[in-house]
């Protein structure tokens, strides 16, 4: 029951944050110089002032800002994120079309980085001082300092251009017209490089965190007690150390959700991955405000959800946590 109250409280807080983000996004993006009508005018070859005014009126750009905000919020509640100026289609459907690709990329990168990071980190902690530890710690330090986009470029150079193992861009090979299982394999083949590149940084983070936190926990009193009782070391590691050492990893995974989504802008741009990150950058260059607003809102909601999930998972993992609002 306490847990339900706790979750309800987190949901309300999350909703308020989303509302605040909606309002702020609206103002930031709308106050920018360069409205979408001038972009259309710039690329159409010729456009007269009357026609531009007509378009502005049509898009509601001639209304006072506060009216535009009110209309925006009203529509938002009905799931209407507006119309893309550039594509003339509903923003929600433009984003939803791209969302699966991004979810596939981020979730697989998150999973692979948590698993490999925790495994590597605990390996380094258990073999502290050996060359395993040195190797893992050095690699983690290195990847922690490497820009995503650069390692992406180098991966393309090595694995796509020189070795030819993986495709250099995109998510599918449309010219092959694959269906069924071949289609899935084709997507996975395209996924390997961007997923690994996006995951590497976080793998490094998790490895470092796991190692540090396991070393810290292993010197705590309850572990000493367990050792004194003569329990086997493997059992202690699994039952006591790892479980407690995972807490900071979980916290961090929640905090990192936003970073991970931000990282997709770079990775999707480098790998031509047809997701929301690339859409965000394209929309920015085209001043397609409503799409940008939508992406902000949806990625922020994703972060809020990720944080709530983290908090909830935390209550299950940590026996000591107080469950209260």
């Amino acid at each position: 029951m306490d847990r339900l109250n706790f979750i309800a409280g987190r949901l309300v807080k999350g909703a308020l944050i989303v509302l605040a983000i909606a309002i702020m996004n609206f103002f930031i993006v709308r106050l920018a110089p360069g409205d979408p009508v001038s972009v259309l005018a710039g690329q159409s070859g010729a456009m007269d002032q009357d026609y531009m005014d007509e378009l502005r009126q049509r898009f509601g750009l001639d209304q006072p800002l506060i009216v535009q905000l009110w209309i925006y919020l009203q529509n938002l509640f009905q799931g209407d994120l507006g119309t893309s100026y550039r594509q003339g289609r509903a923003v929600l459907s433009v984003i939803l079309e791209r969302l699966p690709a991004t979810l596939l990329l981020t979730i697989s990168a998150a999973i692979i980085s948590v698993i490999l990071g925790v495994v590597a980190g605990s390996l380094a902690a258990r073999r502290r001082g050996t060359w395993w530890d040195t190797l893992i710690s050095s690699l983690a330090l290195l990847f922690y300092a490497t820009p995503l986009f650069w390692i992406g470029l180098m991966a393309i150079l090595l694995f796509s251009l020189v070795l030819g193992w993986f495709p250099a861009f995109g998510m599918v090979s449309p010219e092959k017209e694959y269906t069924g299982i071949m289609h899935i394999l084709d997507v996975l083949h395209h996924l390997v490089l961007p997923m690994t590149v996006l995951g590497l940084f976080y793998m490094a983070v998790y490895a470092r965190l796991t190692r540090a936190s396991m070393l810290e926990v292993s010197e705590m009193d309850f572990v000493r007690t367990a050792r004194a009782k003569g329990l086997p070391e493997g059992y202690i590691t699994r039952r006591h150390i790892l479980r407690n050492a995972l807490l900071p990893v979980i916290t961090f995974a929640g905090i990192q959700a936003g970073h991970l989504i931000g990282g997709t802008v770079l990775v999707e741009t480098v790998f031509g991955w047809p997701g929301v990150g690339r859409l965000a950058f394209d929309s920015l260059l085209q001043r397609d405000y409503s799409v940008l607003l939508g992406i902000f809102l949806i990625t922020s909601i994703m972060v809020v959800i990720a944080n709530i999930i983290t908090d909830v998972v935390y209550t299950f993992v940590d026996p000591r946590i107080e469950v209260k609002q």
Partner: peptide, 10 residues
């Protein structure tokens, strides 16, 4: 909560 890189880009 706001994804930081996207925020910075904007």
């Amino acid at each position: 909560t706001i994804p930081s890189l996207i925020f910075a880009i904007v």
